[in-house]
């Protein structure tokens, strides 16, 4: 193990390491802790200039209550869910199939198609912006959740295919060979042999795509406007305009907007990290 395990060092080194950990963490998360602190302060603290002292009273209920009951925030959150969940399902479903096709079959253009997915996944969004916006307008899907979902599914299929294909490549190929010798139809091999083995990959991809799409801001701004279809990342800016300079409310709003992916991460941590670091180890 590298660096040298701390247990093998002197007692003093061990103690100072254990002391250093929480200090380092506090410094690392300082900007976030500040926002969390702001979000539970009552508004009088801001008018009296008590920015960094302890809250004079616990204003958490009032602040978060305002976010949930006196703003469009619940609507934006709902939109975010209605955009994110179908995208996750669509992108994962499509890429299970593309990944299977590219991972199992040998045909001439296999690697080229695979590389096209990978390259498309890397392009800057801006090169797609004008045509995709135009396309969405033409289909009458501008400013709808459907328009956003369809594009997200298509774009995420690039990354998901890369992921699934590499995962399927690592599965024992003999299983498929054996099934073929038995004369099992190809779609049955996909459904009954390969798909059950892909559960960890599906879990990992689902949490990753959930986070990516929840946090998307660019496409939300390009393809939607207004509270009826905008997700929370775009909604937070209008929320902030509504409560300009009300830092306790803006902080509470930001925390609410950030929470679902955070919850997802802590609940599904193992899958999340496995997905993110795929390929980081040979």
């Amino acid at each position: 193990m590298f660096p040298k395990p701390i247990e093998k060092s002197s007692r003093a080194a061990q103690l100072s390491y254990q002391g250093l950990l929480p200090i380092a963490l506090l410094m690392w998360l300082a900007p976030l802790i500040a926002v969390a602190l702001f979000s539970i302060k009552p508004d009088t603290d801001f008018t009296t200039g008590n920015y960094w002292g302890l809250p004079s009273a616990f204003g958490g209920f009032e602040n978060y209550g305002k976010v949930f009951f006196q703003s469009d925030m619940p609507r934006y959150l709902m939109n975010s869910f209605l955009i994110t969940v179908p995208t996750v399902i669509g992108a994962v479903a499509l890429s299970c199939m593309t990944g299977f096709a590219l991972g199992i079959y040998k045909f001439k253009s296999n690697l080229w198609i695979f590389f096209m997915f990978v390259a498309g996944n890397f392009v800057p969004f801006q090169i797609l912006m004008v045509p995709v916006r135009d396309l969405t307008l033409d289909m009458g899907l501008y400013n709808t959740k459907t328009g956003l979902v369809l594009f997200h599914i298509a774009f995420q299929t690039g990354f998901c295919t890369l992921f699934m294909r590499n995962f399927i490549r690592a599965l024992p190929y003999e299983l498929i060979e054996a099934a073929r010798v038995e004369g099992v139809a190809e779609w049955r091999i996909f459904w009954f042999v390969v798909l059950p083995l892909m559960k960890p990959a599906i879990a990992a991809l689902s949490v990753l795509i959930f986070t990516f799409i929840w946090n998307d801001y660019f496409w939300a701004v390009v393809l939607t406007q207004g509270a009826e279809s905008q997700p929370v990342t775009a909604g937070i800016t209008s929320f902030n305009a509504q409560y300009r300079a009300a830092y306790h409310l803006m902080s509470a709003g930001s925390i609410v907007a950030a929470l679902p992916p955070v919850a997802m991460f802590f609940l599904m941590q193992r899958h999340f990290i496995a997905g993110l670091t795929l390929g980081a180890v040979k």
Partner: peptide, 13 residues
């Protein structure tokens, strides 16, 4: 895990 929008707000403050 936090969206860049929130990171941006947090750092602006």
């Amino acid at each position: 895990v936090i969206s860049q929008v929130v990171v941006g707000l947090v750092f602006t403050w």
